[in-house]
Design a protein around this nucleic acid. Structure first.
Length: 444
DNA sequence: TCACCACCAACACTCGATGA
DNA sequence: TCATCGAGTGTTGGTGGTGA
């Protein structure tokens, strides 16, 4: 993105503007504005993409105010990618639905090494590749946040949307512009691309989330329960200025659509998923670091080794991660494998083991659905688990209760399937004392 | 200002229908 | 028989709108 020489120059010019030295005073307002814009963009990249700031917040603010003053004095100096244009004053009360350029699919799941080997076998069968040939896989963290789709046209960010139902999402462009790790401008035209759509995940660093909650506690405000809901909630706020306060981050994980100026498929000359990530990193997007956070594995056993190492060290990682994503790296093989209506056949999520807790099954209530189906729901003693308080767990049907031999008063092991849905894993039969009561399903 | 409700986000699981 | 699809079910938390 920036060569060492460019970085050195930008840093030196930052100091010149802070000190208002002779070289700065000699510039015209337009030259000053152009240079300040470049300096601030560089520092946003250092801070939000590289996590390695070189200026203090105060110094950044001073430079920002210099640019703001120049633009206020002469609005013709304002450009759409100016850091001052991230946060507008307009409030958006409605978020219209917009169609994604390509569907935002889910992923199939795997939970252990055997599942991954089975996935590898499936891919080979589908592509008529023999067992003793290897497929290269790109492996990257599965961030636990809110999905986002970004559209750039003629190098400028023109639209951002939530995932929605995968076909239609909610338009949140103004809020996306307030997230400083999303570049307002990226030089796709350098690569002959006129219109692109990117996929990413919006989330909050764990330390920034804790700092925000500490601030809220000091101000007497209610605390946020967990980082993911805070991030996804932040995307839907009316006021972009408040979004900017949330310190949201965005990792980009796919270039899902690309069109050249001639209207041709711009993905044709991008041979691998890894190439597309390298391209996006070059253009200034936040991408997991090669080698440490993501890896190109030459065969499935290397994938298993990498995801296992990640599972062991996930707690130390500064972002919430609920698994890893394994993708066939070769785009031509991806095309051949295709997708179902639900997920691509060339990618799979490896889910880390869910966090578990024990609680007591106190009662069972029966809920009647819209079409008249009756669903038993366990009321359990409230227990904190993975950032939420679990008090209610679906038991699905009578067979589920029988199969797990659940009884009122049982101590049960609960987890959050997919880190979301409460699920009773089993009753801890060793802890029974004879006082447990059978669960009676209502007669039809 | 507060409580309540609707909607949305995350996603798992079940089940009947369908097609290969 | 198996894979897939699609509808319907579920939980928790955040935001925004509304009414008291």
């Amino acid at each position: 993105m920036y060569s060492p020489a460019e970085q050195k120059l930008r840093f030196a010019r930052s100091k010149a503007f802070l000190e208002q030295d002779a070289s700065v005073l000699a510039l015209s307002p337009r030259e000053k504005a152009e240079e300040l814009r470049a300096i601030l963009q560089y520092h946003e990249w250092r801070y939000y993409i590289q996590n390695d700031p070189v200026l203090s917040d105060t110094e950044y603010d001073l430079l920002y105010k210099q640019l703001e003053a120049l633009e206020a004095a002469d609005p013709s100096l304002i450009t759409p990618d100016s850091p001052t244009q991230r946060v507008g004053s307009d409030l958006s009360s409605d978020m219209p639905s917009v169609a994604h350029l390509t569907p935002m699919l889910s992923l199939a799941n795997s939970y252990n090494a055997e599942d991954l080997r089975e996935f590898d076998q499936q891919v080979k069968r589908m592509l008529n590749i023999s067992d003793n040939e290897d497929i290269a896989y790109a492996v990257e963290p599965k961030f636990d946040g809110g999905s986002i789709a970004l559209v750039y046209e003629n190098d400028y960010l023109v639209r951002a949307a939530t995932r929605g139902n995968g076909i239609l999402g909610e338009e949140i462009t103004a809020n996306a512009r307030a997230i400083r790790s999303i570049p307002l401008k990226a030089s796709f035209s350098k690569y002959g691309l006129q219109k692109v759509e990117l996929r990413g995940e919006v989330l909050i660093r764990k330390d920034r989330f804790e700092a925000m909650n500490a601030q809220r506690a000091a101000a007497g405000q209610s605390l946020f329960a967990n980082a993911r809901n805070t991030a996804t909630g932040g995307l839907r706020m009316k006021d972009p200025r408040e979004v900017a306060q949330r310190n949201l981050d965005t990792f980009i994980y796919a270039l899902s659509y690309a069109e050249t100026a001639e209207g041709a498929n711009g993905l044709d000359h991008i041979k691998t998923h890894y190439q597309s990530l390298d391209l996006l990193a070059e253009l200034g997007f936040k991408i997991p670091a090669d080698g440490q956070e993501r890896k190109l594995c030459t065969h499935i056993e290397e994938v298993i080794e990498f995801v296992t190492a990640w599972e062991t060290g996930r707690e130390a990682y500064p972002y919430e991660v609920d698994g890893m994503v394994v993708k066939v790296n070769d785009r031509e093989l991806q095309e051949r494998a295709g997708h179902t209506s639900h997920h691509p056949r060339w990618a799979i999520a490896y889910k880390f083991a869910a966090k578990q807790a024990t609680t007591v099954l106190e009662a069972v209530e029966y809920q009647v659905g819209k079409v008249g189906s009756i669903t038993p729901v366990a009321k359990v003693r409230p227990v904190a688990l993975a950032g939420v308080t679990i008090s209610s767990v679906s038991l699905h049907n009578e067979d589920f209760i029988k199969e797990k031999d659940l009884r009122l008063g049982d101590t049960v092991l609960v987890e959050r399937a997919g880190d979301v849905i409460p699920y009773i894993v089993k009753a801890l039969e060793d802890l029974r004392d004879g006082s447990e009561q059978p669960i009676v399903f209502p007669t039809h």
